[in-house]
Simulated assay, not measured.
Amino acid sequence: MKKPVLLELNTVPCTFIERLNRFVALVDVNGETRKALVTNTGRLEEFMIPGRKAFCLPKTSGKTDFVLVAFEDLEGKGAVIDTRTQAKAFERAVELGLVPWLKDCRIKRKEVKVGSSRLDYLFDCPGGETYAEMKSAVLRGGKRGEYAMYPDCPSTRGQKHIRELIELKKAGKGAMIFFIGAMPGVEKFRPYERGDPEIARLLREAEKAGVEIHALSISLLPGKGVILERPELEIEV
């Protein structure tokens, strides 16, 4: 079955050289060394290997020339590491009604202040409002590489968000955390215990408290854009 294109992106091929810091990488574009913005704060060690083919999006302002959007992965497709691209693709999928676990929901607000945190979304659904946080799952696991996992390193921010969602649910409000498995070929989601055992524990606590946990998968199809791979992944917490 043909997979829907969620975002059209005019990316250019590039080659990863090195990560200078949390937000900047060096890439080779047409034989020239250029700076690229990295929006994903994970370690991304399985992708950020010198010489690995990647896909960059030109920028028109700022201290970097490109955004590092994706790395070449399976079947010539790209694993989308750029969290802004992940969010835009997800929002388009919701708008098109392609996310079964958000059927008949709409995004009411983004960047919603809750306690001392900001959560990514507030959804207006037939059953009422639901507070939601999105996380990027771009670590592959499993014998067949069938799992998208999060996080690949400790995340106190992620821990804080899950605790906020648990408290919201206990207060009788709708609460959800969902993961963008931004790689081709993944079928399931599970937390990466070695990356942050507290995140894994909190997700189990959240599930018991009634917080909804979901995941979907996307990938970059070079020359086309970001496609929806699977609208729902199996969850294992």
Rank of each mutant, 00 (worst) to 15 (best):
L139R: 07
E164H: 12
A54V: 08
K135M: 06
G195D: 08
L102M: 08
D104N: 13
T64H: 14
K135A: 02
R52L: 08
A200H: 06
L96C: 11
M183E: 10
N30P: 12
V12Q: 01
S61W: 14
L6R: 02
V69D: 03
S117R: 11
G115C: 13
L233E: 03
V69W: 04
K113N: 14
E8R: 10
I235K: 02
R230A: 10
C56N: 02
E133W: 03
R92A: 09
A36D: 06
L9F: 08
R34H: 07
V29I: 15
K59E: 10
K77C: 05
R92F: 11
E32L: 08
R157K: 12
R230W: 09
K143D: 15
E187H: 10
E91T: 09
L44R: 00
R140I: 05
S136R: 04
N40G: 06
I81H: 00
E205R: 03
L44V: 06
S219Q: 13
G158V: 00
S61K: 14
G223D: 01
N10C: 10
K188T: 05
G115A: 08
G181M: 05
S116M: 12
P100K: 08
N30Q: 11
A93Q: 05
E46L: 06
E133G: 03
C153I: 11
G128A: 07
L139D: 01
G158S: 03
T15C: 01
L202G: 00
V112L: 12
Q86C: 12
K63S: 14
R22P: 11
L57W: 11
L216V: 10
V69Q: 07
K103V: 13
M183D: 07
F179S: 02
Q159V: 03
L68S: 05
E32T: 04
D196V: 01
I107M: 05
D124S: 13
H214D: 13
F123P: 01
L228N: 02
E236N: 13
L6A: 07
E205V: 04
F55D: 00
V67E: 03
G141A: 06
R43T: 08
G142A: 11
K3R: 15
E212Q: 15
V211M: 05
P126W: 04
L68A: 04
T11D: 07
F178S: 04
N30G: 09
F55T: 00
S136A: 15
K160R: 13
V38R: 00
K169L: 11
E129T: 06
I166T: 01
L9Q: 02
R118A: 15
R230G: 06
K208W: 05
T156G: 14
T85N: 09
T33L: 15
G78E: 00
H161V: 05
K2S: 14
F71Y: 12
K135W: 02
I180D: 02
E72F: 04
T83H: 10
E232M: 12
I17W: 02
V112R: 06
I227R: 02
A148T: 13
E91I: 11
K160I: 04
G181L: 04
L98D: 08
